[in-house]
């Protein structure tokens, strides 16, 4: 990939991550700026410290915002903003391998 191609790929992911951060802050009424959340930040437990009620709210918000139903997904979907971006924008997931244990 050339530098310009890399920048375009990164920008596509950043755009989706920014959209997700705004959605999280707005839907959960968090007292922070969306930009303060980092792409790799864990969302549950440590990190953003969301709980199971927040998950339910996010399921609804994600379907409304991205048209993607994640109700039956496992919790790894919420491993980070960037991981969530792979699920709401599958074109991103094709570029970034996800880990497994």
């Amino acid at each position: 990939m050339t530098l310009d191609e890399l920048r375009a790929t990164a920008a596509a992911r950043h755009d989706t991550c920014t959209q997700i951060k705004k959605m999280i802050v707005s839907r959960l009424d968090l007292p922070i700026e969306p930009a303060w959340i980092t792409d790799d930040q864990p969302l549950f437990g440590r990190g953003l410290e969301l709980d199971s009620l927040d998950v339910l709210e996010l399921y609804v918000a994600i379907e409304a915002e991205f048209g993607v139903a994640l109700y039956d997904s496992d919790m790894s979907v919420f491993g980070s903003v960037s991981r969530l971006a792979d699920h709401v924008n599958p074109a991103l997931a094709e570029q970034a391998p996800t880990g497994s244990a």
């Binding site: 792409d39 790799d40 864990p42 919790m75 790894s76 960037s82 971006a85 792979d86 996800t98 880990g99």
Partner: peptide, 12 residues
């Protein structure tokens, strides 16, 4: 990579 790089088994 997207974080987490390895998905913990505890999550399932």
């Amino acid at each position: 990579l997207t974080s987490p790089y390895v998905t913990p088994k505890s999550w399932s």
